[in-house]
């Protein structure tokens, strides 16, 4: 009797998760195996019908013979290092400002959060116009302040900074997660510190930052993963130019796959991207032992 119930529940469990299980097999596991194989083949889909096995040649060519691969990787790292740390600092500042008891604070929260949900082509088009070298609002303001007015997307030096600046408009997501983290810090901690005569900075340094460090870790990892996969903005705003100044990794991968239809080569790029993201994530998580502080440690 007991056994029959267990068997029944096991069957029902698999029935209920079957949409995901099937999806996993069809859209994840099988594609992973195929992708690994395709990455070891020469397959220009427009020319030959079937992939031709060539071993690790794609990987070797990428790493040793393809200048654009390295340029795209370098550009992506530039983008990630520019947008992630500064973006996190901005998100934290905004979250701290929102964590005050002020009338109308939800209006400010909406204003800061809104841009992060409306990503996509329309937003990219908007920012092309904002950064227009002659009539865009950024250069209008810079000119008014008597500052130099760069060519932004027309200038290889300034195209990437423009993309990075634009990314700051979308920090609302991390900001909201920081805000949730801040609201989870017990107020008694601050009250106790105030009794000890702590000032604003030392409260931030010794209570807020350590208590928030798991949230920082989460946002950092998500930020790195996201920034390595940046695509739509670059595709719409610069197409990788001027020259190769903003040719980022996923854009180059996309070009190989869907412009030149070099499926083997693009698949190899995808696997290298996976390894890079994996290593970076593991490094960050490993390093977190030194700077992330978990509440449970105190309670012991």
């Amino acid at each position: 009797m007991y056994k029959k119930r267990v068997i029944k529940e096991t069957i029902y469990f698999h029935l209920y998760i079957s949409p995901w299980l099937l999806g996993f097999l069809i859209f994840t596991l099988w594609p992973i195996i195929q992708s690994l194989y395709i990455s070891l083949t020469d397959w220009e889909m427009q020319l030959n019908k079937y992939p031709k096995f060539i071993g690790i040649s794609n990987y070797r060519n990428l790493l040793f013979n393809d200048e654009l691969f390295w340029i795209s990787l370098k550009n992506t790292i530039y983008y990630a290092f520019g947008s992630v740390p500064l973006g996190l600092i901005l998100a934290l500042i905004l979250a701290l400002l929102l964590n005050q008891k002020l009338r109308g604070i939800t209006i400010f929260r909406t204003i800061f959060y809104l841009p992060s949900v409306i990503s996509g082509v329309a937003v990219a088009l908007l920012w092309v116009w904002i950064f227009n070298p002659n009539f865009g609002i950024v250069n209008v303001i810079l000119a008014k302040l008597g500052l130099p007015t760069p060519g932004w997307f027309g200038d290889p030096e300034w195209a990437m900074p423009a993309l990075i600046i634009m990314s700051f408009w979308g920090v609302g997501g991390s900001m909201l997660i920081f805000l949730a983290g801040l609201q989870g810090i017990p107020t008694e901690f601050y009250e106790a510190a105030e009794i000890d005569g702590a000032n604003l900075w030392s409260k931030f340094r010794h209570i807020t930052l350590p208590m928030l460090s798991p949230t920082i870790l989460f946002n950092l990892v998500m930020g790195i993963i996201g920034s390595f996969q940046v695509f739509t903005n670059v595709y719409i705003m610069t197409s990788g130019g001027p020259g190769t100044a903003t040719l980022v990794y996923v854009l180059y991968l996309f070009q190989n796959a869907f412009l030149y239809f070099k499926m083997g080569y693009a698949s190899a790029m995808a696997w290298i991207l996976f390894v890079i993201i994996l290593i970076l994530t593991l490094l960050v998580i490993k390093s977190s032992a030194f700077w992330v502080y978990y509440e449970t440690e105190v309670k012991k």
Partner: peptide
């Protein structure tokens, strides 16, 4: 299930397209 979240979409993009 959780570990599939680690996999960047670009890896499966091409086989799914095919």
């Amino acid at each position: 299930l959780l570990s599939t979240m680690m996999l960047p979409g670009q890896v499966t993009m091409i086989p799914i397209y095919i």
